[in-house]
């Protein structure tokens, strides 16, 4: 045992802040928590297939709408859905939607100086509707339920498989990266210029890890006789909550279409 290792060491810290590392840890924790919680926040009693279909329909109807009153109807409908969310899901969804809306507002702001007030009001409102609707959907179900719903819509197997495996890898590699960044933080006990080089090292290790995982998954799939088919059998049950949800969505989309057709 070397002499220095047997001694208790007095060490004066020459501290530098690790803001970037801390922020990376927080961001990764957020992503992993969202994936781990997938479905745990369950804010919907409706079948995922209806949610996926009508969320997509509402986004398309809102995107195609030209009248502000149509967008206002969609906005009202999404706001009612937001009001029904539990507090934690509501906070997260509103935060996400507001950030996206502000971003859109900043992008279209120059149009206001050119006299195009329509774009400045309508486009951010459309972004809010889309962002909030997608976020409500993602909080209502785990990713497996959403990809299962896509499979029901006859989306090609390979697409559903890729989506499933991508979500799985975001979680797996996210956990791996989190541990690497935490390990880096634990060993950053002073101040050196090599810290950011180490972050590049973490990225390199992550790349190698993802390559190994991908190769092993491919080998495992071959061993299990993967032939490109990825069936996700599930039976669609039409319950009263589904009927109510579908009726409300159909009514909103019908009103939007009516406004677009009749108002000139």
């Amino acid at each position: 045992m070397p002499e220095w290792l047997a001694k208790t060491e007095e060490y004066t810290v020459n501290a530098g802040r690790d803001t970037f590392i801390d922020k990376s840890i927080l961001a990764l924790l957020g992503v992993i928590a969202r994936l781990r919680l997938g479905g745990a926040e369950r804010v919907s009693k409706t079948d995922a297939a209806f949610r996926v279909f009508f969320t997509l329909a509402l986004i398309i109807a809102t995107a195609l709408a030209r009248e502000f009153s149509s967008v206002f109807v969609a906005l009202t409908f999404v706001t009612i859905q937001l009001a029904a969310l539990p507090p934690r899901a509501l906070r997260g969804t509103v935060k996400f939607a507001v950030i996206a809306t502000l971003f859109a507002f900043v992008i279209v702001l120059p149009a206001a100086f050119a006299g195009n007030r329509y774009s400045v009001t309508v486009l951010p409102a459309k972004v809010f509707v889309s962002a909030a609707a997608v976020n409500i959907l993602s909080r209502a179900y785990g990713w497996d339920a959403i990809t299962g719903a896509l499979a029901r819509f006859r989306v090609p197997d390979i697409f559903v498989f890729l989506l499933d495996i991508t979500v799985k890898y975001i979680f797996t590699l996210g956990e791996f990266t989190l541990q690497s960044v935490q390990a880096l933080k634990l060993r950053c006990v002073g101040r050196t210029d090599r810290r950011y080089g180490s972050l590049a090292g973490v990225a390199g290790v992550l790349f190698l890890r993802s390559k190994t995982l991908a190769e092993e998954t491919q080998q495992a799939m071959e061993c299990r006789g993967f032939s490109g088919q990825y069936p996700r059998p599930s039976r669609l049950k039409f319950r009263s909550a589904d009927a109510l949800y579908s009726a409300a969505n159909l009514a909103v989309i019908a009103v939007i279409i009516w406004i677009e057709v009749t108002v000139k």
Binding site: Q179, R187, V189, G190, S198, G201, V205
Partner: peptide, 20 residues
Amino acid sequence: KAFHRKVGFVFQNSETQLFC
């Protein structure tokens, strides 16, 4: 940093802590 210097941690998956 002083605390982390005093308490060393070896992760279950050693691969995660090797980045050099």
